[in-house]
Design a protein around this nucleic acid. Structure first.
Lengths: 373, 373
DNA sequence: CTGTTAGCGCTTTCAA
DNA sequence: TTGAAAGCGCTAACAG
């Protein structure tokens, strides 16, 4: 960054008229005893020369980088932006530097990023993996130390994790909607290839089957393939458009639709609105995630929250906690975050005994609580 | 990451029965001549031991880190998420690793991040500064090398920059709206303390004054102070709510409102809708930025684009270009990105000769082109 | 073609 | 209380 050669510790030592050892001692703020006059001289020299210690020298010597690698499927998706915010805060507060990188939803790239992080000697790794099969991951994650997985479940990896109860989330959505009087509920999703998606659907379906309303296979609308993700990354919205078109085309009689996540729900709502349907008047829509924007769209989205910021923060906390324990043989920590339904405006309550084609009522009334929390 | 001591180059050398120099040569893929049998032995040993070179050793020796620091006001704001995506792509394609960090909109923190990046010996720095006064920045940005500023203008710094024509953006919005028949247009913003905000307003006001419609001071509605930013970072939306309330309370007769950015516009629209106004039926709303979500809200937001992804990409490109030029005395590169209005659904066209209280017409018609491009 | 060796900047023993 | 010196892992100049 300087145009000139970088100032090193020995430049400072020379100027202050002391040894490099002394410089190192005062600049590292240890309680090592140094005569006050020398200490002042060092401080002044360093200040005057605008000295900045070189991390590489230090890290090479100490074997510690102070870095934590964070690998995400995407950095443009607001869900992960919120994770990043939580992670960054927690890491910096603890004196670590997070290094974020995205796998861009490509399994091979994820592995590449892991390799890169190893080269950079990160002290730990936070991963939201898209390698459904944990095999390849295992190769790079040796021992159970210093890695915590979050967001996406990964079986058979003996490392810490911060997960989310996707199954319960699906169930919560089903209960909420049936509680509002809906008897036919469509489930709208791109291919159920990720464990998280499958879990949401499983919970949703089971909750319906265990209630008196039941679930009909024709109410599951799955896209044949995911929309290709462009550079800007908002393929999920486009998925929503396609899903709504499919829904409309097959004249699905559902009075409510659950989309696999908030952005997809935005696409569904927009397409429905453009086709002349009212939301939630004609059909109610729910999402999953509760990203910031869910509160900003119109109608504001009723959704099931996945605490993104908290997840990012906790993942960092678990990792750092493990780092600081000398004893690595301790059991890895596992945390499971709970979903919660966030009531807003995109779901209407149906009057009992009707078939759902009536007018909407704002669902902001809180009278109908869901059975879980 | 391993539970055991890390494998070093000399471990590999020992196992392969060669010197460390040979290992270095084959593993770095130079065209340095090495006998084929030895090369194979090295490769095999490295593979078997799962050897990963240590960047610190390499960087210390070579003086190059391959890292590029990127400092942003926020990582949760989707505008910057898009910048990040562009930057990450460009950096990785060129073999650099971007290191993202946020100043959290705090000038002091920005400086701290710059210091940190220096310690980490980044080869260059990309900054969207919030230090309006470039004085403190200059202290850390010595020489004109290896820094490029983007997004926010900063005067008097002799480094590369990728800017955006905020003034033109403001003018474009004004022209677009007057072209649609609007004669009273409110300008809604938190305090005009940042150069970018001031520039937008300046362009907006001047365009109005130079046209036949003029600008009235009472149509500028500025919040006394910005909403405090919470951890989740969506204070701009709240600003929009407050702005709309102020607009309503003062019975502003404007038929259109321009908000300082898209998220603020979302807040404005939502509050207007909740007060019973129709958008764009009763009042049209425009934003600035064209973040991904602008297309997802209802009505979809008509806005003036600031090419975020492109900006991030270009900033990285300019920086890397400079890095690779041996001659640092060359003039720093400056790029100015142009705004463009993105027509969607939040602006209606007024029939000439009426006072704007009539019904909306979808503005998706493209008949009325704005005078710039 | 291959190996030996000198450092890169820093921390930290060890000796004074 | 201070300084000398070893050495972290790696690259590259130099010698063979």
């Amino acid at each position: 960054m300087d145009s000139r050669r970088r100032i090193t510790i020995s430049d400072v030592a020379k100027k202050a008229g002391v040894s490099i050892a002394t410089v190192s001692r005062v600049l590292n703020g240890t309680d090592y005893p140094v005569k006050d006059s020398l200490r002042k001289a060092v401080l002044r020299a360093a200040e005057q020369m605008n000295y900045t210690p070189n991390f590489f020298g230090r890290s090479l010597k100490s074997g510690k980088s102070n870095d934590i690698g964070v690998i995400l499927p995407s950095m443009i998706n607001p869900f992960y932006s919120e994770v990043i915010a939580g992670t960054e805060k927690e890491c910096r507060d603890a004196g670590y530097n997070p290094i974020f990188c995205s796998s861009n939803n490509e399994p091979e790239k994820e592995l590449e990023q892991i390799r890169l992080m190893r080269k950079k000697c990160v002290e730990g790794l936070l991963i939201s993996t898209i390698n459904a099969d944990s095999g390849p991951l295992r190769r790079y994650i040796m021992g159970n130390s210093n890695v915590v997985l979050f967001d996406q479940p990964a079986e058979g990896l003996s490392c810490g994790s911060v997960g989310y109860d996707f199954t319960l989330a699906g169930a919560l959505a089903a209960h909420y909607l049936t509680g509002k009087g809906h008897r036919r509920i469509a489930f709208l999703s791109p291919p159920l290839d990720r464990p998280s998606r499958r879990a949401i659907f499983k919970g949703f379906r089971r909750a319906l089957e265990e209630s008196d309303v039941g679930f009909r296979p024709e109410d599951l609308i799955v896209l044949p393939s995911e929309t290709a993700l462009d550079e800007k990354g908002n393929y999920e919205f486009e998925n929503g458009h396609r899903l709504a078109r499919a829904f409309l085309k097959m004249h699905c009689p559902a009075t409510a639709a659950v989309a696999i996540n908030d952005i997809t729900a935005f696409g569904v709502i927009q397409e429905l609105l453009r086709s002349g349907r009212r939301v939630p008047g004609d059909i109610s829509v729910m999402g999953f995630d509760n990203i910031n924007f869910s509160a900003m769209v119109n109608p504001a989205l009723t959704t099931v929250s996945q605490p993104s910021f908290e997840m990012g923060r906790l993942a960092a906390r678990v990792l750092i906690g493990g780092l600081q324990k000398a004893d690595r043989r301790e059991a890895a920590e596992h945390i499971l975050l709970k979903p919660e339904v966030i009531e807003r405006e995109s779901v209407c309550t149906l009057r009992p005994g009707t078939d759902g084609k009536e007018k909407s009522m704002k669902s902001l009334d809180n009278q109908q609580k869901h059975p879980y929390t």
